[in-house]
Write a protein that binds this DNA or RNA. Sequence first.
DNA 1: TCAAAAGTGTTCCGCATACACCCATGT
DNA 2: ACATGGGTGTATGCGGAACACTTTTGA
Lengths: 238, 238
Amino acid sequence: MFIHTKNVNTHLTEIKDYFKVAISVDCVIFGFDDAELKVLLIESDLKEFKGKWSLLGDIVRPDEDLENAAYRVLQARTGLDDVYMEQVQTFGALNRHPGGRVITVAYYSLVNIEHIELKNLSNELHWHSVKDVQQMEMAFDHRLILDTCLRRLQHQVIEQPVGFNLLPKKFTLRELQNLYEAILDMKLDRRNFRKKFFAMDVLIDLNEEEEEVPHRPAKLYKFNADRYAQQKKKSLGF
Amino acid sequence: MFIHTKNVNTHLTEIKDYFKVAISVDCVIFGFDDAELKVLLIESDLKEFKGKWSLLGDIVRPDEDLENAAYRVLQARTGLDDVYMEQVQTFGALNRHPGGRVITVAYYSLVNIEHIELKNLSNELHWHSVKDVQQMEMAFDHRLILDTCLRRLQHQVIEQPVGFNLLPKKFTLRELQNLYEAILDMKLDRRNFRKKFFAMDVLIDLNEEEEEVPHRPAKLYKFNADRYAQQKKKSLGF
DNA sequence: TCAAAAGTGTTCCGCATACACCCATGT
DNA sequence: ACATGGGTGTATGCGGAACACTTTTGA
């Protein structure tokens, strides 16, 4: 059996011999519009993946840490930098990139789609319905990455009220519920949904109403960020 | 503002320019003994961290993927390879390693401490109580990595019965409860704990008892792996 | 007989679920 | 008036939490 007692945490001599790998970040940028969960994708230019959709990513530069790299990618494509972002998982299969060994750290971020003016220089950058894109082929292992990030988002959204990041500042309860139904891909009971959020005490009633809707206007709320900070301490199960 | 439209997912020309980073894996190997949660650490040899404790890790080789690297580290130190392991998070702060840019992918694994014969070539490899080690300084950012992995384990253990991996094949309910109390760092009610696990239906009564205990012997159980597979589909919250 | 831990049931409470009718607005 | 979605309350059931006594064994 191979016994390895000298390694990167004990001796440095070997590090230079292993500089044959590149690190990238890939961003799964989620938005919400038209009662659908969307994801921002670009067409791949690589001949191996011609015409397939790709996440937005880039190599991590020597002088930036991982989060910075992810925010740089986000900023370059959307102009935004103050958004919710979370590291999800790192993918390092040997042949995931045809150009060589590239290990990628996946992040997802939640953006308010209305605030975004796409840096759409080449007309290759588009919002896609997540449900649609799940029927399409994607470049690299980006299908796997997207699915992993979506599952993580679904998990996160039922534990903590992160969904607000996808909505405008002012929103109605119906919009909030549409969002949750889109993320979780299931129908929710309206009365119970409202009760749940009121009980959480993270909504501030703005005493305003929708306008120009062809039916009774709904009340507008905003997110109570202070309460949210406290919500984080939750016990589950035990 | 900087606009970056050509990147690793679209063009390959830049990859070679960024080969200035090394990738490692670090393993947080948890065990359970003496009613305490333990972690396997080694003394750091680096002059910068002389005498401080370090996780077990190594550079990822060009021809192995991340999981393989983590299993290789585990195997080299413990002789085990068939253990529960989970990727937790990737740490890439610029100066986390004094020898250069090293980005590390952290895994935690759960092992049965009795099965382990440490490859203790240098007498520097030891099991430590997690509670004790939280009072001690650690090398690199390993304190942060350890804390992150512990939180992840705490979270995981209340969602799915992964704790079994830390116990012998046959165990008593008291041992199981001690394990949960050690991981979660809290006292649990005995009757409710038993009820919960019987209701989960993941315990097989072996119709055997402890021996050589100076009190009423407890029944021995083993883990029902089949039921466990089904348990995975759980709805939370909605 | 004593010490030490094993084993066992019930009550209470909060939360998730299921479910139907009236209200306000624009056309 | 009508169509459309907004807004509201109650009953039921399940699961988590709190809680004390009897049983079995070895010393």
